[in-house]
Amino acid sequence: MPLMPKRVKFRKQQRGVLKGNAQRGNFVAYGEYGLQCTGMGWMTARQIEAGRIAARQFLSREGKLYIRVFPDKPISKKPLETRMGKGKAEPEYWAARVKPGTIIYEVAGVPRELAVQAFTRVAHKMPFKCRFIERRHA
């Protein structure tokens, strides 16, 4: 089951506009290595889940995987062959807003080579370009 909020204040949201770069969540905070996106867009809950499964299956039971984004934006979609109008459609799926620099996944407790391989597989499932990143030290 993909991620989604437990409680929301409003069922539907306007689309909004994504601008600029990530000003928060743009450094590796929990693990040692991370996957950072360099593109911008919505990342659906299914994409987040696909990435998690890809990393988890590759790492088997090694290390700890952190998901740094959460799909808290409801995206509505009109059914097929529906005329325009008649109000906003029902929420279809949930998405996370991702800006250039956002860290999507982090991993701790695995060697660097393994983390690179795992995140390479995950990057193939992402809807934008991603890059491997290491924790920045003081």
Partner: peptide, 24 residues
């Protein structure tokens, strides 16, 4: 996580859930 139906929706804080399907 256990598989739930596609229609599962989060609880709306304060206020009744609007049930009127607007789609035609």
């Amino acid at each position: 996580p256990e598989e739930e139906g596609d229609g599962s929706e989060p609880e709306v804080i304060g206020g009744k859930k609007d049930e009127d399907g607007a789609s035609e």
